[in-house]
Design a protein around this nucleic acid. Sequence first.
DNA 1: AGGAAAACCTGCGTGC
DNA 2: TGCACGCAGGTTTTCC
Length: 271
Amino acid sequence: MPELPEVETTRRGIADILTGQAIETVTVRDPRLRWPVPDHLQQTLQGQRVRSVERRAKYLLIGFEHGTLIVHLGMSGTLRVVTAARAVEKHDHVDLALEDGRILRYRDPRRFGCILWHEQATATHPLLASLGPEPLSDTFNADYLKLQLARRQAAIKLVIMDQHVVVGVGNIYASEALFRARIDPQKPAATLKKREITALVDAIKATLADAIAAGGTTLRDYVDSSGNTGYFQLQTYAYGRAGEPCRVCNSPIVEIRQGQRATFFCPNCQK
DNA sequence: AGGAAAACCTGCGTGC
DNA sequence: TGCACGCAGGTTTTCC
């Protein structure tokens, strides 16, 4: 899925368009996402105005007067603003029709995403309640991460992908951030020295910021709210580059499996 | 507890 | 051309 940069790029694309507008109709063509799309959405949202469009971790939070629409894009989800004339395609599961005539259209071939309604404070939702800090915030720093890594014997890559430790770091940016910090992804988390932890925190922030600036990464499905692909895939150092020369030292990038996911790294640069 | 693996899906590339 | 297999931006659930 979309990791944090793709969700943030999507948020930025839809925020100004949605904010202040009322929802005219909700069309659910297929409610079978990760959890069923609530069947009361039409009654609940009709006439309600969007107050805010925020992001927490990889969740988009569309705030209304009486509650929040919680949207996750899963592995293959996209959210686009289209005109009413736009043909509905396969996997276009949900439409929110806006009062200006445009449509916010949710597409998700694999249906790993979700669209949920929550009327209490968003932080109280079970999916959001135990998330770690935002990686681009000051609460995600070396002192914090050092505490989180202590006593954890799992590989550092798996730990930085744990959303309880820090949110938003998915499979691509985990490999990229570890390359940038010159750390072997297989290292047990608790063995990292303080200066390595500092480098890793800086690398995660820089990698995510660069990816947001590039409009995210498009491997296959991802497009932003206007239908444009991201460009970060053109500048990866490790991810997807198995066998290709390291951009720093020219030795071949290696691919391994960690936690059933592909990991890419340079054994020469990353120790 | 932490950690590993299975589960949820569709689509696409590869190799026979 | 067809088919089986493995793999894909995630996260919850289950089991040890």
